[in-house]
Amino acid sequence: MPTALITGITGQDGLYLSELLSSKGYRVYGLVRGQNNPKAAALAVTHPFVEILTGNLLDLSSLVRAINAAAPDEVYNLGAVSFVAYSWQNARLTTDVTGGGVLNILEAVRFYQDSTGKQVRFYQASSSEMFGKVQEVPQRENTLLWPRSPYGVAKVYGHYMTVNYRESYGMHASSGILFNHESPRRGPEFVTRKVTQAVARISLGIQKDIALGNLDAQRDWGFAGDYVEAMWLMLQQPGADDYVISTGTTQSIRSLLDIAFDEVGIDDWEPHVRIDPQFFRPAEVDLLVGDSTKAATVLGWKPKVGFDELIRMMVRNDVDQQSKLAAG
C-alpha cells in the first residue's frame, strides 16, 4: 500500500486529493496545524480514512517528526497562506509560510531520505500568480515570472527552491503551476465562491447585492477535482519536472456573473452588483491563461469539467446550503 502525506489537507485541494489517493489504495496522512483545530475535527468526520498528524510549515522539527511518523512514498505540499488579497495585509506571514514553509518541508524530506535511503516523491503547489505581469500569452513552463503580490513572490521562492533541491540533491521534486481552480469547497473569500454564495442568497431573498472589484479581470478557471489528478500524475513519472495545469481559456468576472445569475433565473445582474474600490488589488493581474500542452503530452492530462458546468455546480451547491441554513 503506497503512503502519502498531504500538507494543507483541509483546503479544497487537500480534500479532493485525499479522496483520489484513497480511491487508488493509498494510506493517506494529513498534516494539520495546532491543537483542537476545528478543521481537524471536521476532517475526521468527512474524511475518516485520513490519518491526522500535527505540524506546522514554520516548524522544521514538527515536519521531521510528521514525515518520520508517516514514512511516505509521496509528499504533497499544498499548505500555504493562499488568499492573494490577504498577502498585502500580512506580507511577512505570507512569505514565511508560503515561501519559507516550502524550504522547511523540502529539508524535512531530504533529512528523511538521507537517514532511511528511501526516495520520497515531492509535489509543490506552485501558482499562476507567479506570472503576474504576464510577459507572454499564454503562459508556459518557461515563461518569465513577474509576480505582482506578496503571495506571488512567495510562490516564486517556493517554486525555485523546489527546482533547486531537484537539481542539487537529485530529489524527485515536481512543481505544478496550477491556474485558478475552483469547487463547491472553495473558501468564500475567493471571488468565485463569493459570487456563487451571494447569488444563492440573493435568489432566496436573504441578500440584496454583492460588492466586487475589477469586473474585467480575466482568469483561466478549472475544477479542483480535475487538477488534483494532475498532481498525482506528476509523481508517477520516472523523472520530476514542472507542469502548467490549466484549461487554456479565460473568463472574466462578468462571465462568471452571467452564468451564476442565469442558474437562478436572474437575467439582469447589474442591479445586484456594486463596485467597491477596496476590492481592487494594489497591483492588478489582468490576464492569466495557461498552456498545458506539456501536461497533456507527458502526463496524458486534460480538464474534464468546463467553466459553465463548474459555476452552475457551485451555485446549486450554495443554493442547497443556504436553503438549509435559512430553514434552520
Results as ranks from 00 to 15, higher is better:
Leu287Met: 07
Ile177Arg: 14
Ser22Arg: 07
Ser128Gly: 15
Asp13Ser: 10
Glu309Trp: 07
Ile245Glu: 03
Ala230Val: 13
Leu103Glu: 09
Pro38Gly: 07
Ile210Gly: 10
Gly11Thr: 01
Ala224Asp: 08
Val81Phe: 10
Leu310Tyr: 11
Asp318Val: 03
Asp13Asn: 11
Arg27Pro: 00
Ser18Gln: 02
Ile253Thr: 15
Gln321Gly: 00
Phe261Val: 11
Asp318Cys: 06
Asp267Val: 09
Phe280Lys: 10
Ile311Gln: 08
Gln237His: 02
Trp88Val: 03
Gly117Met: 00
His47Arg: 15
Gln322His: 04
Ser252Gln: 09
Asp320Ile: 01
Ile105Gly: 02
Asp276Tyr: 08
Ala326Asp: 14
Gly158Ala: 06
Arg92Gly: 04
Trp269Ala: 01
Leu106Met: 05
Arg219Asn: 07
Arg110Cys: 05
Lys302Arg: 15
Val199Phe: 12
Ser115Val: 05
Phe122Cys: 02
Ile245Val: 15
Met1His: 10
Trp146Arg: 13
Ile67Asp: 02
Ala327Asn: 13
Trp88Ser: 06
Pro2Glu: 09
Ala70Cys: 00
Val109Gln: 02
Pro2Ser: 12
Val134Tyr: 05
Asn164Gly: 15
Val244Gly: 03
Gly30Val: 02
Leu257Cys: 13
Tyr16His: 14
Thr249Asn: 13
Gly11Ile: 01
Gln35Thr: 12
Ala41Trp: 00
Gln218Ile: 13
Ala154Arg: 02
Thr46Asn: 12
Met313Val: 00
Ser23Phe: 05
Arg166Val: 00
Thr162Gly: 02
Glu189His: 12
Gln89Ile: 01
Pro150Lys: 06
Ala224His: 07
Gly25Cys: 12
Met130Cys: 14
Ile275Cys: 07
Thr116Pro: 05
Met171Thr: 09
Asp318Arg: 07
Asn104Phe: 04
Leu256Tyr: 05
Ser174Ala: 15
Glu263Gln: 15
Leu256Phe: 04
Ser22Gly: 04
Lys208Met: 01
Phe223His: 14
Asp59Trp: 00
Lys302Thr: 15
Arg33Asn: 04
Phe190Glu: 15
Gly55Val: 09
Met231Glu: 12
Lys208Phe: 00
Gly248Ile: 10
Val244His: 02
Thr98Leu: 04
Glu107Asp: 08
Asp276Phe: 09
His159Cys: 03
Val81Thr: 11
Asp308Phe: 02
Phe122Lys: 03
Glu51Ser: 14
Arg33Cys: 01
Asp226His: 02
Phe190Asn: 14
Tyr151Trp: 07
Phe49Asn: 00
Asn180Ile: 09
Arg65Asn: 14
Arg148Met: 07
Val134Thr: 14
Gln251Glu: 13
Val50Glu: 06
Ser61Gly: 03
Gly170Ser: 09
Val102Cys: 05
Asp242Leu: 03
Gly99Met: 05
Glu182Leu: 08
Ala230Trp: 08
Ala40Asn: 04
Val81Leu: 13
Arg316Pro: 01
Ala173Ser: 11
Glu129Cys: 11
Leu58Gln: 08
Gln119Lys: 14
Asn104Trp: 05
Asn214Trp: 10
Glu19Gln: 12
Pro282Trp: 08
Gln197Lys: 15
Ala85Thr: 11
